[in-house]
Structure formats: C-alpha cells, structure tokens
Design a protein around this nucleic acid. Structure first.
Length: 573
DNA sequence: GCCGTTTTCGGCCCGACTGTTTTCAGTCG
C-alpha cells in the first residue's frame, strides 16, 4: 500500500464531503491528512502496528484518521468512503475539476440536472439549461462553455524552466511601467517547485487600477479572468495562468510572504501569530487594528517569533519546528557550486565539443568539470566504446594542458545492464577520473529485480556516482521502482554519491528523495547533464531542487574545491 | 476531524473578485 493511495482516498473523501455540505473543517482535516501521508518519507503501512499510536504522532492524524489509515492499509478500501460515494450525486466530483465549479455548484448541477460528466456539462451548457438554475445565470453558462472550450488534451503543470521564461518576461513588462517600484514572482515558483500550475506576480505600485490595466494588456494575454484594483488574473496564449497582486510599500513584505505560500505553511504560521494575539494577512501583521509588520518579509517572521525561512522550505514539512529551535539548514546556494560533474560532448550525443564545454564552464567561474559521455550500450546516441574512452582521455589531457583555470576530469556515464553488470570493462573504468552509472533501459523491472540490479552496480569498486537515480521524466515516465532505503544505504556504504540531475524534465533525485537520502548519510552531487554549452546554465534548477530537499553545502560534493573533491573520490575507491 | 502552557469544548486563516444579488454566496488562492 503506497502512501499516495491512502492520500488519494482521503482526497476523494474530502471532495465528496464537500459536495455533501459537511463541516468545512472536517473536509480540511481529510485534505491535510492526505498531504501529511503523501509527504511522509516512509510508508504509513509500516506505522500500522500495535494500537495505532505511531500513526497518531503524525500531525493532523488523530484516533479516527489513524483508524481509517489502518483500515485502508489492511483492506485496501475505506467503508466510510464507499458510504459517501453512495450518497453523493454521481459525477459531481468530476464537475469540480472545471474551474469556477465548486462543491455547491457541482451539487446543483449533478443533483437537479443529473449531469454526470464534463461532457454532459458541455451539452447542458450548449442547450442553455444552466442559466435557469438557481445561483447561475447567462454569464455563468458562458464562462462554463469558455472553460470547456479552452480545455486541451494535456492540461498539466509546466516545467519550472518554461515558467521562468514567461514569468521573467511579464516581470520585465511590469517593471517598465511608471509607478511600479518592485515586482517579484511568488507562489510555488519562488518556493522552487519543479513544476508550476500558475504564476503569482506581486507588484508594488501606488496606482493599483493602472498597473492592473497594464497587466491585462500584456500582449500574450488570451483571456482575462479577473480584473480589479488589487488583483487581476489572466491566461496567456500558452495556457499559463498568471495572477497579479498589487500592494503598497508598507504591505509588500507581508504580501510576498503570503503569496509565496505554501498554504499549509501559511496556516501553521498564522496559528503561531494567533497565539501571540496577532492577525496575519497579505497586508501585514496586526495587533488589533494596528499594523506591527509588513514592509519586509523578515519583519513578518520576526513578529511571530521566527527567523526568516527560505521559501524552498515553506511546505509545512517541519521547517517551522526547526526554525523555532534554531535548527534551520544552511541551504546550499548556486554560488557554492565549484564544478559541474555530468555533461556530454560531441564525442557522444552532446552538441558542444570538449573545448566549447570547457570554455563555457571556465567563463562561468567553475574550477572543474567532468565530461561523462555515454558508453557503447547507448547506440542510438553514438556512445563510446572502450577504445573511444582511451582516445578521449588523450584529448582531455591535451585540453587540460591548455586550460588555465579549469580542470577537466575524464568521466563516463555507464549503463547498468539488467543483470547489474556495467557496460565498460574494469580496465576502462579504472582509467577514468570519475564513473557515473545510470539506468536508461528496462526501467520497468519488478522492484525486487530493479533493486538487485542497482545494488550490484553500486557495489562495483570503480563506481563514484549514481546518475539520475530513478530515471523518471516529469510529466513523462514514472521511473524505476527500487527499495530506496536499501539503495541509499548501499551507496553510503560504498562511497557512491547520488546525483541531482538539473535537467528541467528530470530533476532526479527529487526534493523528498534528497531529504531522505541526506538523512541516511548520503552525499549529493548536483550537475547539469548538459548536452550543449547553454545547458550548463541548468545548474540553478538542480540547486533549487536540492534546497527543497534541505541540502546544505556540506552535503553537496561539488561545492568542494578541486583538491578536496578529488580526495573524496579517491577515498571511496 | 483535530487539538489544547488561556481550552477536553469550541474553536479552527483570511480576503478579493464575480455574478446574481437587493446584502451575499460561491469560488479561488
């Protein structure tokens, strides 16, 4: 039983209770429980033993929810959920997926018109049946039709790197507007999340209506969803939704804090404020009607008795407790990175030559890089064979003789065969400075077999780094299923480092995996897996992911100067 | 449904925009 499955059932329970009109706090308790279970590092199934006391140690899990978790783990289903499913109008849950339709309207649509699907909703709207319903009108019907028309096949969260391009261009557009003194992206983007559903942009401006007008006139706007003096919301042609909030100087920090989220984090901090008799909202921290903080984000934190918490940690995953006890991690930064350890050249599937990659890395201020072209198994990308790596080694030696500030390490990204053996001979591996191993094929092996495959590779004496350990692609494929704890422990025991691959569609390991790996004593490397000189710029995305995993500089091997990094490599061989 | 150094009962985060409203409910973030 996976935590995700428990979470899914609790979320469905929350939606059905909402439609039923249940107490909103009860609904929230289920949603909160779903999140807590989903983000818990170990399977909650392993906590189901004895009297359920261990389950109740999880925040927001009391006797009732502990019992329900136990029921799900033991039986695979939840009687209470089946019961509300029976009572709820069929199809109402699906209708809530349409923006603008919440529990109340879903209940009306499914209950009175008998609409059971999004397709049925479209038919009813086209037939003009919706405008006659209580609480609806012609405008609501039009909006529903527009929403349904705009729906595209792959409605997904977009990658952080893509969102950055749109966000930065809107920021530039707004900053150029007279009267705008500050503008920032907040929301999940600021928290460093690997994908974003929409972008939240804050501006400081005395004339809210004027900047809101300017915002909705952004050239790429396809649709205006809301357009007020403090808030506006648009959809770009790309389908990306952008929300704007206008704040004045004395509230800017509070607004930035508030709209950075996460929601769960904000609620927890607001509760801290309440205990001190304070009210927190997007305009500031208030004692009664008097504002005591708000201009700067750190003042908001200070008012509730906390140090400033980096946005990447604001997920209500223990950061508030850590902050209260002076235990916040000192997160790794992009500036800490001294070298990039995985990249490809034209010798395999890269688009930049060895020289071009090295020159770009040197210009970026790095002290070292490793070139890690593919081995022979990757035929479709022209991987190198043993002789090819020997020839490349000579080229790298000549290149190093010419370079002044940068050292190029000779490496390889070696495939792990399904039986756990490696794709290059031991002689070749011994001649390399750094050896990455990776899974590229047969990601579908059964967890037991996949784990054995990986363990065999990680215990090979020449292996230094396990590259993109799961092989997942964001919005693409799920990745290999392994016993993560066993893999991490083997890596720690054999001095193998775990990679955070900074490619925006990989970001593998992900945040929670980084955190549990570090907790188990693993050392991380963050690298770009660049296939062109430009992609060396991807490092920032990997650093963001590692920060979300609470990684400190000391946890990340490629923050070390070259001599200390090499010492680390040799120590493990 | 959870939770407690003011509470084991009675709270639970808070505000903006829209549309259908004659003062507010629903939805969203």
């Amino acid at each position: 039983m996976e935590n995700a499955e428990v979470a899914r059932l609790f979320r469905e329970m929350a939606e059905l209770l909402e439609i039923e009109g249940a107490n909103a706090f009860r609904v929230r308790a289920y949603r909160n429980a779903a999140r807590v279970v989903e983000e818990h590092a170990e399977p909650v199934a392993s906590l189901v033993e004895g009297d359920g006391r261990r389950l109740q140690e999880l925040p927001g899990i009391g006797a009732d929810l502990a019992g329900k978790i136990e029921e799900i783990v033991r039986t695979g289903s939840l009687a209470a959920l089946s019961e509300v499913r029976r009572k709820a109008p069929k199809g109402a849950v699906e209708l809530m997926r349409v923006p603008g339709i919440g529990p109340s309207r879903a209940r009306t649509l499914a209950g009175t018109l008998g609409i059971r699907s999004v397709a049925g909703l479209a038919r009813a709207a086209k037939a003009g049946k919706i405008r006659a319903l209580p609480g609806f009108g012609a405008a609501s019907e039009r909006k529903i039709l527009a929403e349904l028309g705009a729906r595209t096949a792959g409605e997904r969260r977009i990658s952080r790197a893509v969102a950055a391009q749109y966000g930065e261009s809107v920021l530039e557009y707004l900053r150029a507007f007279e009267g705008v003194t500050r503008a920032d992206i907040a929301g999940s983007f600021r928290r460093g999340r690997e994908t974003v559903g929409d972008l939240d942009i804050l501006v400081e401006c005395a004339d809210g209506q004027a900047v809101s007008d300017r915002f909705v006139a952004f050239p790429e706007v396809r649709e205006v969803l809301a357009h007020g003096a403090t808030r506006a919301s648009v959809v770009l042609r790309s389908g990306l939704q952008i929300d704007l909030r206008v704040l004045d100087a004395k509230s800017y920090g509070a607004g930035l804090y508030y709209f950075t989220g996460s929601k769960a984090h904000n609620i927890a901090v607001r509760r801290l404020g309440q205990k001190r008799g304070l009210k927190l909202n997007e305009y500031g921290v208030f004692r009664g009607t008097r504002q005591i903080a708000g201009a700067r984000e750190q003042d908001v934190f200070r008012a509730v008795g906390l140090p400033w918490i980096p946005p990447e940690l604001r997920e209500d995953r223990g950061e508030i407790e850590a902050a209260l006890h002076h235990g916040l991690p000192d997160l790794v930064t992009l500036d800490d990175i001294r070298g990039d350890l995985q990249m490809h050249s034209t010798d395999s599937d890269g688009r930049g030559s060895l020289e071009e990659m090295a020159e770009t890395a040197e210009a970026m201020g790095y002290a070292y890089i490793a070139v890690t072209d593919h081995g022979p198994m990757m035929r479709m990308v022209r991987g190198l064979d043993d002789a090819g790596f020997r020839r490349q080694r000579k080229k790298i030696d000549r290149l190093n003789a010419k370079l002044r500030k940068l050292t190029v390490l000779a490496g390889a990204e070696v495939d792990i065969h399904p039986d756990g053996t490696l794709d290059l001979t031991d002689d070749t591996l011994a001649g390399l400075d750094i050896v990455f191993v990776a899974l590229h094929a047969r990601l579908d092996l059964a967890p037991e077999k996949q784990t054995e495959r990986v363990l065999r590779a990680l215990t090979h004496p020449h292996v230094d780094v396990f590259a993109h350990p799961t092989g997942r692609l964001i919005n693409g494929r799920r990745g290999a299923q392994v016993d993560f704890d066993r893999v991490v422990k083997a890596a720690v025991d054999h001095g193998v480092m775990l990679e955070v691959d900074a490619q925006p569609e990989r970001l593998d390991l992900d945040d929670t995996a980084v955190r549990s790996a570090i907790g188990l004593g693993a050392t991380i490397v963050i690298d770009t897996d660049a296939h062109s000189p430009n992609e060396l710029r991807f490092m920032r995305w990997g650093v963001d992911q590692a920060r979300r995993g609470w990684a400190e500089k000391k946890n990340v091997a490629n923050t070390r100067p070259l001599s200390r990094f090499l010492k680390l490599l040799h120590a493990s061989r």
